[in-house]
């Protein structure tokens, strides 16, 4: 009989080892090349300067980093983008998170229409952001707002949801509107795992809906909230907030940093010589966001509720 270890196959036979090696080889190489090497190359690209504009002729230096601080136009663009990203994250957390929690609680309580609401809330998550954004922009821009819009006719004033004054608000309303699906689903699935006995004993002790939500439900789902808070924070500077479908390549005053980086790479169209500054900016942001993410994780672990 072949030798077996207690946990796992883990046989020391040559055949098993060969089988394992053959299967794991290609995915490992793929990871090494497209993750490790790509990120090392990204690091190198940030320091590459192309004075002649030819990809093979380059020098090493800090120009790609200083570019964002010495070039006045770029510096302003970067600061605006960072500000927009931070503001958008704060808005998403302050509105999207509590609303998502309340919606989930509503479904957890099996209130009227809970099943239907659950399905419809999830729908924006499976539809392309491109689809919803296009519809939303046309409805708000042409049907409700704009010179011939219904609201403009009713109020007698021309209401434009996409002018300089309102476009950021319109963008964030859409982002919050389309953001509930996955989070509500996760929260409700977690809430469903709460033992009914706990809820019943709280009722016997005289807890009302608000107390039940605050003292029982929230602590029980805090681990999920933590995941959303941390992953949202880690993605602050990569999230694009559907910018491209709402504005195309225009309106730099409201663009988030994620879009600024993406646009730079997309516009380069495979031309390496133009990508250095974006690799450098990505590197700067990574060095800022990684320790902050770990700090947030540690803080939430310290101050948050514990599931008991």
């Amino acid at each position: 009989m072949r030798k077996m270890k207690k946990a796992g196959l883990g046989q020391n036979t040559f055949k098993s080892k060969l089988f394992y090696t053959l299967l794991v080889l290609l995915p490992s190489l793929q990871f090494l090349f497209f993750y490790v090497f790509v990120n090392l190359n990204s690091f190198a690209l940030a320091f590459k300067i192309f004075p002649t504009g030819i990809a093979k002729e380059f020098e090493w230096g800090w120009d790609n980093f200083t570019y964002w601080f010495t070039n006045q136009v770029r510096n302003t663009e970067m600061k605006l983008a960072i500000g927009n990203s931070l503001k958008s994250y704060a808005i998403s957390m302050c509105t999207g998170l509590p609303l998502g929690l309340f919606f989930s609680y509503y479904m957890f309580k099996r209130m009227p229409g809970a099943k239907l609401f659950r399905i419809l809330l999830f729908m924006p998550s499976i539809l392309s952001a491109a689809v919803l954004a296009t519809i939303y922009k046309n409805v708000t821009g042409l049907v409700l707002g704009g010179a011939n819009g219904l609201l403009s006719k009713w109020t007698g004033e021309v209401i434009n949801f996409w002018d300089a004054e309102h476009r950021y608000t319109s963008m964030m309303v859409f982002c919050v509107f389309a953001s509930f699906g996955t989070s509500v689903l996760m929260y409700t699935n977690k809430m469903d795992a709460i033992a009914p006995e706990i809820i019943e004993s709280a009722h016997l002790d005289g807890a009302n809906g608000v107390k039940e939500f605050w003292y029982i439900v929230l602590p029980q789902i805090f681990s999920i909230m933590q995941v959303f808070l941390i992953s949202g924070f880690a993605g602050i500077f990569t999230n694009q907030y559907n910018f491209m479908m709402l504005f195309g390549y225009e309106q730099p005053d409201v663009q988030p940093l994620g879009f600024l980086l993406w646009r730079g790479v997309a516009r380069a169209g495979g031309n390496t010589t133009q990508m250095g500054p974006y690799a450098a900016l990505g590197l700067i942001i990574t060095f800022i966001i990684v320790p902050l993410t770990f700090l947030l994780r540690w803080t939430l672990g310290k101050i948050g509720w514990k599931e008991e």
Binding site: V265, M275, G276, Y278, L283, I285, T286, T293
Partner: peptide
């Protein structure tokens, strides 16, 4: 979280 590796990927 690693930001901005797209340039390198391309």
């Amino acid at each position: 979280p690693i930001v901005g590796a797209q340039a390198s990927e391309v």
